[in-house]
């Protein structure tokens, strides 16, 4: 089966950005802050895959559970040590946001040191690398192509199930809606937040671990993705996970396929402005709809409900 590389890139990239955007949104929902270190989790995932394949010679897919657990644990640690502590003391949203920036600086430097240590100890080349050769082939396609898509869809389904059917998920949604009300109902908010940080960290790290299989990676790759992640999350409306799915896919596709098409239409100079394309889409959407696509969705919901009410009313009147 032959699929043009640009489509593979689009699908893989969009899937990973979608997962990362969902995670970003989830953090925003429970902690009410944009987590600037979110992309850096992906950077850690990249180096987990790198270590397992290059240093230990394992299949890159072995890193999936390891990356998930490691990223989750790290994210929990960050929450316990920094974010949770700051919240307890009463640091405002901006203080927390700035602290995630500091965490991002810290973690990026740590990845750099790790890359240096690998070079020093194993004499292996660690900066920009790509692991396409280590990937498995499924009927002529790179394994990461179906896998990233499946991973993305599975994340959405599992999250949907988690949020609607399990107690923890319902507690999470309640916390996102109104923490004080949720705590009155007996929900341990600290535990809910801890769980959501574990989940987002793990997912981000897992997404990152798939990245080097198709894209070029270096210690700053993860932190460089944060603007795309934020754009995806914001496009979806920041407080709706289903919006983030849509937003992530729009951003991923616009960075890849749309840029390529625009270059074909208008000429090469568009390519030089590529990082701006998702941003421009975002800004246009925000100008018309300040609350992102979630706003559209909510308005639609409201209209549906009010319509239903009108129908109900008229039915009731008829009945009377």
């Amino acid at each position: 089966m032959e699929i043009s590389a640009i489509y593979i890139s689009t699908v893989v990239y969009s899937s990973l950005i979608t997962v990362l955007s969902i995670g970003f949104t989830l953090t925003y929902l429970t902690a009410k802050i944009p987590n600037f270190a979110h992309g850096t989790y992906a950077g850690i995932g990249i180096y987990i895959t790198f270590s397992l394949t290059r240093l230990m010679g394992l299949s890159p897919y072995v890193s999936i559970p390891i990356a998930f657990l490691f990223g989750g644990a790290l994210s929990m640690l960050i929450f316990i040590l920094v974010i949770g502590t700051l919240q307890k003391i009463g640091g405002g949203a901006i203080v927390l946001t700035i602290s995630t920036l500091a965490i991002q600086i810290f973690m990026t430097a740590a990845i750099g040191i790790y890359a240096f240590w690998v070079l020093l100890t194993f004499h292996t080349y660690t900066q920009p690398f790509i692991l396409r050769d280590n990937d498995i082939q499924i009927s002529g396609l790179p394994g990461v192509f179906p896998f990233a898509l499946i991973f993305c869809i599975a994340t959405v389904i599992v999250l949907h199930f988690l949020l609607t059917k399990t107690n923890m998920g319902i507690a999470m949604r309640a916390t996102a809606e109104d923490p004080s009300l949720a705590s009155v109902l007996g929900i341990n908010i600290y535990r809910v937040q801890l769980f959501s940080w574990f989940l987002t960290g793990g997912l981000a790290c897992l997404a990152g671990s798939l990245l080097p299989l198709w894209f070029s990676s270096s210690p700053i790759t993860g932190s460089g993705m944060i603007t795309s992640i934020m754009a995806g999350s914001l496009l979806g409306g920041l407080d709706n996970i289903y919006g983030a799915i849509f937003g992530g896919f729009v951003v991923g596709t616009s960075e890849q396929l749309l840029t390529y098409m625009l270059v074909g239409l208008f000429g090469n100079y568009i390519g030089e402005y590529r990082p701006l394309i998702p941003m421009i889409i975002l800004i246009i959407v925000l100008i018309f709809e300040p609350r992102g696509l979630n706003g559209v969705y909510e308005r639609w919901q409201v209209r549906k409900i009010s319509k239903a009410r009108v129908v109900e009313k008229s039915n009731a009147q008829e009945g009377a």
Partner: peptide, 19 residues
């Protein structure tokens, strides 16, 4: 024939390579 320029921060070259 053409000059394809990418920003130094670029980590993914798919759309540029397709062009």
């Amino acid at each position: 024939i053409d000059a394809i320029k990418y920003a130094p921060e670029t980590t993914d070259f798919s759309s540029y390579l397709q062009k």
